[in-house]
Design a protein around this nucleic acid. Sequence first.
DNA 1: CTGAAAGCGCTTACAG
DNA 2: CTGAAAGCGCTTACAG
Lengths: 342, 342
Amino acid sequence: MTDTSQNGRRAAPTLEAVAAEAGVSKSTVSRVINGSNQVSPDAAAAVEAAIERLNYVPNRAARSLVNSRTMAIALVVPEDTTRFFGDPYFAAIMQGIARGLETSDYVLTLQLTSPSHPSTKTIRYLTGGNVDGAFVISHHSGDHFLTELGTSLPVVFGGRPLRTGPGSSYFVDVDNAAAAATGTKHLVDLGRRRIAILAGPVNMPAGVDRTSGWREALNEAGLDPKRIAHGDFSHASGAAAMRELLEQHPDLDAVFVASDLMAMGALTVLRDRGIAVPDDVAVVGFDDSPAAVAGPIQLTTVHQPSQEMGYAMASMMLDLLGGKPVEHARILPTHLVVRDSA
Amino acid sequence: MTDTSQNGRRAAPTLEAVAAEAGVSKSTVSRVINGSNQVSPDAAAAVEAAIERLNYVPNRAARSLVNSRTMAIALVVPEDTTRFFGDPYFAAIMQGIARGLETSDYVLTLQLTSPSHPSTKTIRYLTGGNVDGAFVISHHSGDHFLTELGTSLPVVFGGRPLRTGPGSSYFVDVDNAAAAATGTKHLVDLGRRRIAILAGPVNMPAGVDRTSGWREALNEAGLDPKRIAHGDFSHASGAAAMRELLEQHPDLDAVFVASDLMAMGALTVLRDRGIAVPDDVAVVGFDDSPAAVAGPIQLTTVHQPSQEMGYAMASMMLDLLGGKPVEHARILPTHLVVRDSA
DNA sequence: CTGAAAGCGCTTACAG
DNA sequence: CTGAAAGCGCTTACAG
């Protein structure tokens, strides 16, 4: 009858100990823990008191063994970590997911992996029944193994995957094209006529869709959507693309930028060149991330509810795991936030 | 004899299935999986072939139930997430940890929590035997519940905790004071005489230690360490503190900054004021993060091996869990990287 | 409403 | 070197 293990740490109390303490059977304790209504108030009270007294926490492994559910969900980040962590958009999504899972019993398991070469450990981990589901947060969500993942377990993507795999896929996103059109239209309404775009990558849905939104808005206004340069959503790429744009199209009077981070990079370049914002060139960003208001010029930008997107991913996953009916796509609203840059 | 569950997903093969397939007992399969040498080559080969054929992955829950080890380690982030994810230092540490755990069987579990008010869920999770150990990455690592955590399970801190709790604590860090002195000395050697500091918070070890390193270097050079302003390591706080510094000490000819992020903020302000860097004011940062080379001016800075620190945290933890002797502190080397700002 | 019993998938003495 | 058996801490029909 020892209650400490060899290293001196207290052995955790078990269900059995609680049962003894409460003077009931293990079954009853289990029922109370799992919220069964097949328990008399007296028994329930006794059990709760015993749990309190013993500071009992159910053993996850035992539970998951019998329920064949791991109560863990993978958070897969198939993205260069510098990129990932440098982008407040991802941070917000992650936080939203964490918040959405807070009241559940699920735990988040972190899988940092290369987008192109997931380790076999990661693959085995994900497909080997070690988690009940997976979140994938990335701009690269067209990667092969990830789209296949849906055949092994429920997967919820942050942002529409580039291609859909054989497994059914779920995602939370905004209407990127419409949102980009709104941002661009704002520039049109301001009287700008030579509106460029600092676009995202062509192999990412968010990149493609925002570009078509911009194009459509220009077409609708009878303007030529010909001023375009590409970046990869990062700060540095925004600066580089802005330089390219100025080189090719020195006449531009506005630029719609596919991410706030790129917009910040662009702003730096414009400033270096002595080009006044918004007077000479008006700038509209995308995200409404903390970066938008961190610099000297407050960025006019298209707000997307990043944290809410994460939260929605979590509740989608919870519904999926709970066997509730779930729509495959959840599209959240965006809106324009007008500040100083346009 | 069904091998698919109700939802159509294949039921995972068990140890028993492997044993049947290989024509041996479960004991033998288990021995092969756990690398016992008490197995004949023939049996081992048969088992390995069966595992391959069945694509067998051991059930974690069952294993951890019998071994009473969870094979999970918590990654606790008691920090405002915007702050956390905005700082490449944390990203690098996290990546280092992930890399260090890659070849192990341990999984990282993510706990985003408020520094001051950890949820009871988090506390119960951490102390309730759900993980075998915990990493704490934060600048705030003096928080009460975290220093106590060491009594419940092995904890490795990224950065020396402000105070040590009753549990034994382990950490990986650099010699912040010496590193800061090196950075400051570089400014002295450049002939600067009115060297200010953009310091970190006074309630964080890294803040305090870097400030004393600066102070010492100035004292040693016979200079007065009186020009000081505080930030919280973030970009925005760096800009604000730089403004304050210029207000109070317009005569400064150099500034040592306790983080690259703050240095970037400071650089923005200097540029706005038309103050040339490094000619009018030389700037030395701290971290050597990607931020140091992202802006228009390449930052001279004190390099700290952030990713290696994460890696060291992981191997420290692995040693701890493996019962190997472990020193309580692991101090990694730093060095100055001279670029354009000083 | 309650309890005894079986079983989830492993590991590990124990006996051979 | 190998296998039968017990047991890790739970949950859940089943019988009362």
